[in-house]
Design a protein around this nucleic acid. Structure first.
Lengths: 151, 151
DNA sequence: TTTGTTGCAAAACGTTTGCAGCCTC
DNA sequence: GAGGCTGCAAACGTTTTGCAACAAA
């Protein structure tokens, strides 16, 4: 099981995808993939760009380009949570989780709920083939609820 | 029941909100609210701005300003579906629904599922007070699935 | 050798902001 | 009359694009 989520097998998925779509296997692309898979949690293009700086310098354009490819082969997923930056996260080695978003401070928390996950994933459609999903619950986090009550 | 979703009662909610927060009751704000509530489906700031053109001319800044107020008093909700525009929709007189988003053509379809809605709405958290939620299922619509298979 | 990819910088895009004048309150 | 709101245009910040140089195939 652990092996399935190792960087080697992830890399293989990416290589297959690149080959199939006649894209080139550039060192930049693999460096970005590797960086993403050693990162825990949500990130955005700018965070990733700055993380890369230290290891293997790539341009921001290449970061965006590679994120697009990784989205297409489903190695990462994209969230449009707040206003500004799009957020990304790796899909393998990551438990499927749901998001709690505070409408006051914008903080994002994750939670897992197997029952909920199954309810959603088992929903089938005649004319739509689901590949993945996102569930966002909006509301007030503990801190903001107290602040608004006292303020 | 029908009365509860009429424009008059919606307007009252907005008026209450404006009064409570010491905001002014300007004709622009009511014109925008009215336009939104006579519109079916998702819209974005630009669509709304263009719709207003014919009836009661307002600036784009005012559109954004008013959308912000309507969000705060929960008369509309905001979706960050694709990349570009944020999408909005009215909340009253609208069944709670979920979204199917085609990852190929970007088309958004809605569906309702009472059981799923209840499962999600009944999930409680110790340190988070949920106000609303969004569920997005990503995948391929019928048309795109066929196109990709044949292409 | 061919052609996809890179880095750079400039452009594009939706959204936000600053400001003078206007209009609720 | 005071101060919040409007329209306008300019600014903002993220993402995309055009192009010349480069490198994978």
């Amino acid at each position: 099981m652990k092996e399935d989520n190792s960087y080697e097998s992830i890399k293989e998925i990416f290589t297959e995808y690149l080959k199939k779509h006649k894209h080139r296997k550039t060192p930049e692309r693999y460096a970005i993939l590797e960086r993403i898979y050693s990162y825990e949690g949500h990130f955005n293009a700018d965070i990733l760009y700055n993380l890369m700086e230290a290891e293997y310098r790539v341009s921001l354009a290449t970061v965006y380009n590679t994120l697009e490819l990784l989205l297409e082969c489903k190695l990462i997923i994209k969230h449009q949570l707040g206003g500004q930056f799009a957020q990304y996260e790796k899909t393998f080695g990551n438990n499927t989780h749901h998001h709690l978003i505070c409408t006051n401070c914008g903080k994002v928390r994750e939670f897992t709920d197997k029952q909920l996950r199954i309810s959603i994933q088992s929903r089938k459609f005649a004319h739509f083939q689901t590949s993945h999903y996102s569930l966002y619950l909006y509301g007030l986090c503990h801190k903001c609820k107290l602040e608004l009550k006292n303020g």
